[in-house]
Protein backbone atom coordinates (compact mmCIF):
# COMPACT_ATOMS: atom_id res chain seq x y z
CA UNK A 1 0.00 0.00 0.00
CA UNK A 2 1.39 3.39 -0.98
CA UNK A 3 1.03 6.50 1.09
CA UNK A 4 -0.56 9.71 -0.11
CA UNK A 5 0.84 11.69 2.79
CA UNK A 6 3.89 10.97 4.90
CA UNK A 7 4.98 13.44 7.55
CA UNK A 8 7.73 12.71 10.02
CA UNK A 9 9.16 14.79 12.81
CA UNK A 10 7.54 18.02 11.62
CA UNK A 11 8.27 21.13 13.66
CA UNK A 12 6.83 24.58 13.15
CA UNK A 13 6.95 27.50 15.51
CA UNK A 14 5.69 31.07 15.36
CA UNK A 15 7.94 33.11 17.57
CA UNK A 16 7.80 31.41 20.95
CA UNK A 17 4.72 29.28 20.19
CA UNK A 18 5.41 25.72 19.08
CA UNK A 19 2.50 24.98 16.79
CA UNK A 20 3.91 21.64 15.67
CA UNK A 21 6.27 19.72 17.89
CA UNK A 22 7.57 16.65 16.04
CA UNK A 23 4.40 15.61 14.26
CA UNK A 24 4.20 12.25 12.45
CA UNK A 25 1.32 11.46 10.13
CA UNK A 26 0.75 8.85 7.49
CA UNK A 27 -2.26 8.66 5.20
CA UNK A 28 -2.52 5.63 2.91
CA UNK A 29 -3.71 6.03 -0.65
CA UNK A 30 -7.43 5.36 -0.93
CA UNK A 31 -8.31 5.74 2.73
CA UNK A 32 -10.43 8.28 4.54
CA UNK A 33 -8.24 9.47 7.35
CA UNK A 34 -9.61 11.37 10.33
CA UNK A 35 -7.44 14.09 11.79
CA UNK A 36 -8.79 14.77 15.24
CA UNK A 37 -7.97 17.39 17.77
CA UNK A 38 -9.44 20.36 19.59
CA UNK A 39 -9.05 23.93 18.43
CA UNK A 40 -5.47 25.08 18.47
CA UNK A 41 -3.92 21.60 18.48
CA UNK A 42 -2.15 22.21 15.18
CA UNK A 43 -4.51 20.66 12.61
CA UNK A 44 -4.68 23.67 10.32
CA UNK A 45 -0.96 24.36 10.62
CA UNK A 46 -0.24 20.78 9.55
CA UNK A 47 -2.56 21.15 6.58
CA UNK A 48 -0.97 24.45 5.55
CA UNK A 49 2.44 22.82 5.60
CA UNK A 50 1.04 19.95 3.52
CA UNK A 51 -0.18 22.52 1.00
CA UNK A 52 3.18 24.29 0.86
CA UNK A 53 1.67 27.51 2.25
CA UNK A 54 3.92 27.29 5.28
CA UNK A 55 7.41 25.89 5.43
CA UNK A 56 8.17 23.47 8.25
CA UNK A 57 11.15 24.33 10.47
CA UNK A 58 12.33 20.72 10.59
CA UNK A 59 11.13 17.29 9.53
CA UNK A 60 10.14 15.58 6.29
CA UNK A 61 6.91 16.05 4.40
CA UNK A 62 5.87 14.09 1.35
CA UNK A 63 2.58 14.66 -0.43
CA UNK A 64 1.54 12.45 -3.38
CA UNK A 65 5.19 11.49 -3.70
CA UNK A 66 6.46 15.08 -3.97
CA UNK A 67 7.70 17.92 -1.80
CA UNK A 68 4.82 20.31 -1.16
CA UNK A 69 7.10 23.30 -0.59
CA UNK A 70 9.02 22.98 -3.86
CA UNK A 71 6.43 21.47 -6.18
CA UNK A 72 3.36 23.15 -4.68
CA UNK A 73 1.58 24.16 -7.87
CA UNK A 74 2.28 20.86 -9.66
CA UNK A 75 0.98 18.78 -6.74
CA UNK A 76 -2.02 21.05 -6.23
CA UNK A 77 -3.43 20.02 -9.60
CA UNK A 78 -3.95 16.58 -8.10
CA UNK A 79 -5.71 17.66 -4.93
CA UNK A 80 -8.57 19.83 -3.73
CA UNK A 81 -8.66 21.77 -0.49
CA UNK A 82 -11.51 23.12 1.60
CA UNK A 83 -10.29 25.63 4.22
CA UNK A 84 -11.85 25.90 7.65
CA UNK A 85 -12.65 29.58 7.15
CA UNK A 86 -14.00 30.16 3.68
CA UNK A 87 -13.96 33.77 2.54
CA UNK A 88 -15.28 34.60 -0.90
CA UNK A 89 -14.74 37.63 -3.10
CA UNK A 90 -17.64 39.95 -2.30
CA UNK A 91 -18.59 40.66 -5.90
CA UNK A 92 -18.17 37.21 -7.43
CA UNK A 93 -21.07 34.77 -7.38
CA UNK A 94 -20.76 31.34 -5.78
CA UNK A 95 -21.03 29.73 -9.21
CA UNK A 96 -18.19 31.84 -10.54
CA UNK A 97 -15.96 30.90 -7.61
CA UNK A 98 -16.72 27.19 -8.10
CA UNK A 99 -15.80 27.40 -11.78
CA UNK A 100 -12.71 29.51 -11.16
CA UNK A 101 -11.27 27.24 -8.46
CA UNK A 102 -12.11 24.15 -10.51
CA UNK A 103 -10.48 25.51 -13.64
CA UNK A 104 -7.35 26.50 -11.75
CA UNK A 105 -7.13 22.89 -10.57
CA UNK A 106 -7.48 21.60 -14.09
CA UNK A 107 -11.18 21.24 -14.75
CA UNK A 108 -14.71 20.96 -13.39
CA UNK A 109 -17.01 18.00 -13.94
CA UNK A 110 -20.15 19.88 -15.05
CA UNK A 111 -22.50 17.00 -14.33
CA UNK A 112 -21.14 16.51 -10.87
CA UNK A 113 -21.22 20.26 -10.25
CA UNK A 114 -24.91 20.46 -11.07
CA UNK A 115 -25.63 17.40 -8.97
CA UNK A 116 -23.74 18.74 -5.96
CA UNK A 117 -25.40 22.16 -6.19
CA UNK A 118 -28.74 20.43 -6.00
CA UNK A 119 -27.81 18.11 -3.16
CA UNK A 120 -26.29 20.88 -1.08
CA UNK A 121 -29.23 23.13 -1.96
CA UNK A 122 -26.89 25.98 -2.92
CA UNK A 123 -27.90 28.98 -5.02
CA UNK A 124 -24.90 29.72 -7.28
CA UNK A 125 -26.19 33.13 -8.42
CA UNK A 126 -25.71 34.91 -5.09
CA UNK A 127 -22.77 37.24 -4.58
CA UNK A 128 -20.01 36.22 -2.20
CA UNK A 129 -20.81 38.82 0.44
CA UNK A 130 -24.41 37.68 0.77
CA UNK A 131 -23.67 34.04 1.65
CA UNK A 132 -23.84 32.83 5.25
CA UNK A 133 -20.90 30.93 6.75
CA UNK A 134 -22.49 27.59 5.97
CA UNK A 135 -23.18 28.57 2.38
CA UNK A 136 -19.64 29.83 1.87
CA UNK A 137 -18.45 26.46 3.08
CA UNK A 138 -20.80 24.76 0.62
CA UNK A 139 -19.27 26.79 -2.22
CA UNK A 140 -15.81 25.52 -1.29
CA UNK A 141 -17.10 21.95 -0.86
CA UNK A 142 -18.83 21.89 -4.23
CA UNK A 143 -15.72 23.34 -5.88
CA UNK A 144 -13.56 20.64 -4.28
CA UNK A 145 -15.88 17.68 -4.82
CA UNK A 146 -16.63 18.59 -8.45
CA UNK A 147 -12.93 18.53 -9.36
CA UNK A 148 -11.38 15.34 -10.62
CA UNK A 149 -8.54 14.91 -8.12
CA UNK A 150 -6.78 12.12 -6.25
CA UNK A 151 -6.69 13.70 -2.81
CA UNK A 152 -9.14 15.79 -0.83
CA UNK A 153 -7.85 17.84 2.08
CA UNK A 154 -10.74 19.07 4.17
CA UNK A 155 -10.19 21.31 7.19
CA UNK A 156 -13.22 21.18 9.47
CA UNK A 157 -15.48 21.27 6.43
CA UNK A 158 -18.78 20.91 8.25
CA UNK A 159 -18.31 23.43 11.04
CA UNK A 160 -20.93 25.75 9.52
CA UNK A 161 -23.32 23.16 8.07
CA UNK A 162 -26.71 22.24 9.49
CA UNK A 163 -27.38 18.55 10.38
CA UNK A 164 -29.18 17.96 7.10
CA UNK A 165 -26.22 19.21 5.10
CA UNK A 166 -23.82 17.30 7.31
CA UNK A 167 -25.65 14.16 6.21
CA UNK A 168 -25.26 15.14 2.53
CA UNK A 169 -21.58 15.72 3.20
CA UNK A 170 -21.23 12.25 4.72
CA UNK A 171 -22.84 10.67 1.68
CA UNK A 172 -20.49 12.57 -0.59
CA UNK A 173 -17.42 11.41 1.31
CA UNK A 174 -18.75 7.85 1.27
CA UNK A 175 -18.97 8.11 -2.52
CA UNK A 176 -15.45 9.44 -2.70
CA UNK A 177 -14.25 6.46 -0.71
CA UNK A 178 -15.91 4.13 -3.17
CA UNK A 179 -14.05 5.88 -5.97
CA UNK A 180 -10.82 5.13 -4.09
CA UNK A 181 -9.95 8.73 -3.48
CA UNK A 182 -7.82 9.63 -0.53
CA UNK A 183 -9.39 12.00 2.00
CA UNK A 184 -7.75 13.78 4.90
CA UNK A 185 -10.58 15.00 7.08
CA UNK A 186 -9.65 17.32 9.91
CA UNK A 187 -12.39 17.64 12.45
CA UNK A 188 -13.31 17.98 16.06
CA UNK A 189 -16.70 16.41 15.50
CA UNK A 190 -16.22 12.86 16.74
CA UNK A 191 -19.39 11.32 15.38
CA UNK A 192 -18.47 12.50 11.91
CA UNK A 193 -15.03 10.97 12.10
CA UNK A 194 -16.43 7.78 13.58
CA UNK A 195 -18.93 7.47 10.75
CA UNK A 196 -16.56 8.24 7.89
CA UNK A 197 -12.99 7.37 8.64
CA UNK A 198 -11.00 4.21 8.07
CA UNK A 199 -8.17 5.38 10.23
CA UNK A 200 -7.74 8.18 12.72
CA UNK A 201 -4.86 10.25 14.03
CA UNK A 202 -5.35 12.18 17.22
CA UNK A 203 -3.28 15.31 17.56
CA UNK A 204 -2.54 17.07 20.78
CA UNK A 205 -0.29 20.09 21.27
CA UNK A 206 1.38 19.67 17.90
CA UNK A 207 2.03 15.96 18.19
CA UNK A 208 0.11 12.90 17.02
CA UNK A 209 -0.57 10.95 20.20
CA UNK A 210 -2.56 8.07 18.76
CA UNK A 211 -3.06 6.67 15.31
CA UNK A 212 -4.72 3.57 13.89
CA UNK A 213 -8.06 2.10 12.83
CA UNK A 214 -11.00 2.72 15.10
CA UNK A 215 -10.97 -0.91 16.24
CA UNK A 216 -7.25 -0.68 16.98
CA UNK A 217 -7.90 2.31 19.10
CA UNK A 218 -10.83 0.72 20.85
CA UNK A 219 -8.52 -2.00 22.10
CA UNK A 220 -6.65 0.61 23.99
CA UNK A 221 -9.68 1.66 25.91
CA UNK A 222 -12.53 0.42 28.07
CA UNK A 223 -15.94 -1.10 27.49
CA UNK A 224 -18.65 -0.02 29.88
CA UNK A 225 -20.87 -2.75 31.31
CA UNK A 226 -24.27 -2.62 33.01
CA UNK A 227 -25.45 -6.02 34.23
CA UNK A 228 -28.27 -7.39 36.34
CA UNK A 229 -27.30 -10.70 37.93
CA UNK A 230 -29.16 -13.61 39.53
CA UNK A 231 -27.03 -13.43 42.65
CA UNK A 232 -24.77 -10.80 44.10
CA UNK A 233 -21.46 -10.70 42.29
CA UNK A 234 -18.20 -11.72 43.84
CA UNK A 235 -14.55 -11.58 42.93
CA UNK A 236 -15.05 -8.79 40.42
CA UNK A 237 -13.06 -6.26 42.37
CA UNK A 238 -9.99 -8.44 42.44
CA UNK A 239 -9.88 -8.94 38.66
CA UNK A 240 -7.30 -6.91 36.78
CA UNK A 241 -8.64 -4.30 34.34
CA UNK A 242 -11.88 -3.51 36.19
CA UNK A 243 -12.46 0.15 36.97
CA UNK A 244 -15.12 2.20 38.70
CA UNK A 245 -16.95 -0.81 40.07
CA UNK A 246 -20.37 0.05 41.44
CA UNK A 247 -22.44 -2.76 43.00
CA UNK A 248 -25.98 -2.15 44.17
CA UNK A 249 -27.60 -5.40 45.26
CA UNK A 250 -27.57 -7.58 42.17
CA UNK A 251 -26.80 -4.72 39.80
CA UNK A 252 -23.32 -4.09 38.57
CA UNK A 253 -21.76 -1.22 36.70
CA UNK A 254 -18.12 -1.04 35.71
CA UNK A 255 -15.61 -0.10 33.08
CA UNK A 256 -13.45 -2.90 31.74
CA UNK A 257 -10.19 -2.73 29.84
CA UNK A 258 -11.11 -4.21 26.50
CA UNK A 259 -8.26 -6.73 26.71
CA UNK A 260 -9.70 -8.13 29.99
CA UNK A 261 -13.25 -8.40 28.74
CA UNK A 262 -13.25 -12.20 28.48
CA UNK A 263 -12.24 -12.84 32.09
CA UNK A 264 -14.80 -10.37 33.40
CA UNK A 265 -17.61 -11.92 31.40
CA UNK A 266 -16.78 -15.36 32.81
CA UNK A 267 -16.91 -14.00 36.33
CA UNK A 268 -20.25 -12.35 35.68
CA UNK A 269 -21.87 -15.37 34.11
CA UNK A 270 -20.77 -17.43 37.13
CA UNK A 271 -23.30 -15.37 39.09
CA UNK A 272 -25.94 -15.81 36.39
CA UNK A 273 -26.67 -12.93 33.98
CA UNK A 274 -30.27 -11.72 33.81
CA UNK A 275 -29.63 -8.73 31.60
CA UNK A 276 -26.54 -7.18 30.13
CA UNK A 277 -25.68 -3.95 28.33
CA UNK A 278 -22.12 -3.67 27.05
CA UNK A 279 -21.16 -0.42 25.31
CA UNK A 280 -18.10 -0.29 23.11
CA UNK A 281 -15.92 2.71 23.83
CA UNK A 282 -16.89 5.72 21.79
CA UNK A 283 -14.33 7.82 20.07
CA UNK A 284 -15.36 10.49 22.47
CA UNK A 285 -14.10 8.52 25.42
CA UNK A 286 -10.94 7.76 23.55
CA UNK A 287 -10.53 11.38 22.84
CA UNK A 288 -11.33 12.52 26.34
CA UNK A 289 -8.83 10.09 27.75
CA UNK A 290 -6.09 11.82 25.82
CA UNK A 291 -7.21 15.22 26.82
CA UNK A 292 -8.53 14.85 30.33
CA UNK A 293 -5.16 15.68 31.80
CA UNK A 294 -4.87 18.59 29.43
CA UNK A 295 -5.33 22.09 30.68
CA UNK A 296 -7.30 23.01 27.55
CA UNK A 297 -11.06 23.28 27.95
CA UNK A 298 -13.08 20.63 26.17
CA UNK A 299 -15.87 22.95 25.16
CA UNK A 300 -14.97 22.27 21.55
CA UNK A 301 -15.84 18.60 21.84
CA UNK A 302 -19.36 17.80 20.83
Amino acid sequence: MTSAIVVSGLHKSYGSTHALDGLDLEVATGEVHGFLGPNGAGKSTTIRVLLGLLRGDAGDVSLLGGDPWHDAAKLHRRLAYVPGDVNLWPNLTGGEVIDLLGRLRGGVDQKKRADLLQRFDLDPTKKGRTYSKGNRQKVALVAALASDVELLILDEPTSGLDPLMEEVFRQCIEEERQRDRTVLLSSHILSEVEALCDRVSIIRRGKVVETGTLSDLRHLTRTSIHAELAASPNGLASLPGVHGLDVEGNRVRCEVDTAQLDAVMRQLSASGIKSLVAQPPTLEELFLRHYEDDAEPLAAVR
Partner: peptide
Protein backbone atom coordinates in the same frame (compact mmCIF):
# COMPACT_ATOMS: atom_id res chain seq x y z
CA UNK B 1 -27.19 43.24 -4.42
CA UNK B 2 -28.57 41.58 -7.54
CA UNK B 3 -28.03 37.92 -8.30
CA UNK B 4 -25.22 37.28 -10.75
CA UNK B 5 -24.33 34.57 -13.25
CA UNK B 6 -24.53 30.97 -12.05
CA UNK B 7 -21.43 30.02 -14.03
CA UNK B 8 -18.19 31.87 -14.66
CA UNK B 9 -17.52 33.30 -18.10
CA UNK B 10 -15.06 31.38 -20.23
CA UNK B 11 -12.46 34.10 -19.64
CA UNK B 12 -12.37 33.69 -15.85
CA UNK B 13 -9.80 30.93 -15.81
CA UNK B 14 -6.53 32.50 -14.63
CA UNK B 15 -5.25 34.55 -11.69
CA UNK B 16 -4.87 37.48 -14.06
CA UNK B 17 -8.51 37.25 -15.12
CA UNK B 18 -9.51 37.25 -11.45
CA UNK B 19 -7.22 40.20 -10.68
CA UNK B 20 -8.75 42.17 -13.57
CA UNK B 21 -12.18 41.34 -12.22
Amino acid sequence: PRPGPATASAALRSPLALAWR
